[in-house]
Write a protein that binds this DNA or RNA. Sequence first.
DNA 1: TGATCATGCAACCGAACGGTTGCATTTCAC
DNA 2: GTGAAATGCAACCGTTCGGTTGCATGATCA
Lengths: 115, 115
Amino acid sequence: MPRSLSRNAAPIPNESVLLFAALGDKTRLRLVSRLCEDGPLSITMLTTGARISRQAVTKHLRVLQGAGLVRSKRHGRERLWQLHHQRLAEARRYLAQISSQWDDALARLRKHVEE
Amino acid sequence: MPRSLSRNAAPIPNESVLLFAALGDKTRLRLVSRLCEDGPLSITMLTTGARISRQAVTKHLRVLQGAGLVRSKRHGRERLWQLHHQRLAEARRYLAQISSQWDDALARLRKHVEE
DNA sequence: TGATCATGCAACCGAACGGTTGCATTTCAC
DNA sequence: GTGAAATGCAACCGTTCGGTTGCATGATCA
């Protein structure tokens, strides 16, 4: 029944892997949520209330930065972290695109098998 | 400037972590894409063309199953894997929700700092 | 019924991950 | 200028992850 087997399908941009992987961690998701609610925050502020060390927070922030989800800016002796507007919008669009892909897949699947 | 510091923000459902983590891998993303395009496939079919062993594919499928993204059904001596319609729709809705959350955050951020 | 094809199960392995601790560096505040 | 606060850097550690190999089990077909 499958239309093809060996074709290697879509290209899978590396960015998407980075994006999903960055969000696929409880602590990081909490950090994002936190930055969503309470504007730009320093590392020590973010550490307050979290049950992990400051260094752990730092590492997570770097992962999020690697995915382009957050940005930092030095501000005196502290560094303020915030969500990255533009990249975030891109991510939203990308997720929407994935969704529509899935929609297409749904339609195609319905024609295939109806459980 | 931040409105609060110690509040622990949103609850972060465990499902979302599972979902993102499952999609945060190049090989798994490729598998999903493949299942999207060419209806239900067996493990051996999925292995054909991939550069990893059958067992590796099996493991990845289990991760995707853990996130509720795929399902399998025995069919004779082979097991056919396909995307999970209903769960997939839930995931889409969830991603949309995240997006809107981010929209709100954007608006709030603009009031905060305009780079 | 016996060979074979598709899976399942389990052990193993190196690398990446999440986390910690200790120490160096920068900057503010007095 | 000196001390404390905020961050950066680096090494270390146990666990999980992605992957492999080898062998057992189950189903099909001649």
